[in-house]
Design a protein around this nucleic acid. Structure first.
Lengths: 112, 112
DNA sequence: AAAGTATGTAAGATATTGCTTAAACACTTA
DNA sequence: TAAGTGTTTAAGCAATATCTTACATACTTT
């Protein structure tokens, strides 16, 4: 989880994850999407993502194709969801206590 | 989201979030849980979490009480969940194609 | 008001991260 | 096998993050 959350903390890497979410994308094609940074910089990000087990790599001839590896996100998602929902249910409980007999509107979950 | 994910990338800050998930905890009580780092270091982490809107602060006399602010996690959770589920459904789809007419067991979501 | 308690801020050292350029590697094609 | 294409690795630098010590602030109690 540590590696995954650290990897996901960087905006460029998040953008890469979005790119490779639905389909395999070659390193070159990924790099094209980030004209502001150099190819080696992108390559480093890809290495970080691979090390965090957030992407799979497939070598095909000259090229390397990257693709999101969703299992790598499981622990991170679980952690955040646990934090998020446990605390929301607490807020909900407090609201009930405060307003006492009031119609239960769960606006918190609506803020997504 | 950027601030939230960057804040959550640090293990000490994640541990703090767990501490303040279910109840208010004073800065001192939080600091006690981390004997390996100095009080000012903890204070800095708390400032980072507050800046990311991940915790609320309540001043009561001498002390300051911190508490998880779940709304601050909303965007981050949404992002990770979207990545996670979209990609899992793709994997599921591929599995269906491979195995063809097979009973659709969604074991992926069960890994939570 | 002075001393005590709880906490934060400032300044600076060190570690880590993310970038760049130059070079290397690996596979493909002429 | 030589040149070309796609990509990564290496080395170094600048920016950022995290920690520490010293000090400041803000309440509380005597």
């Amino acid at each position: 989880m540590d590696d995954a959350l650290r990897a996901v903390a960087d905006p460029t890497r998040r953008a890469i994850l979005v790119l490779v979410r639905d389909r395999e994308v070659s390193a070159g094609e990924i790099a094209e999407r980030f004209p502001e940074i150099s190819r080696p910089a992108v390559s480093q990000h890809l290495r970080t993502l691979a090390a965090a087990r957030l992407v799979d790599v497939r070598r095909a001839g000259n090229r390397r194709f990257y693709r999101l590896r969703p299992e790598g996100l499981a622990e991170a998602v679980t952690f955040l969801e646990t934090m998020w929902s446990a605390s929301l249910s607490r807020l909900q409980h407090e609201a009930e206590q405060e307003e006492h007999a009031h119609t239960g509107d769960q606006d918190a979950k609506g803020s997504l």
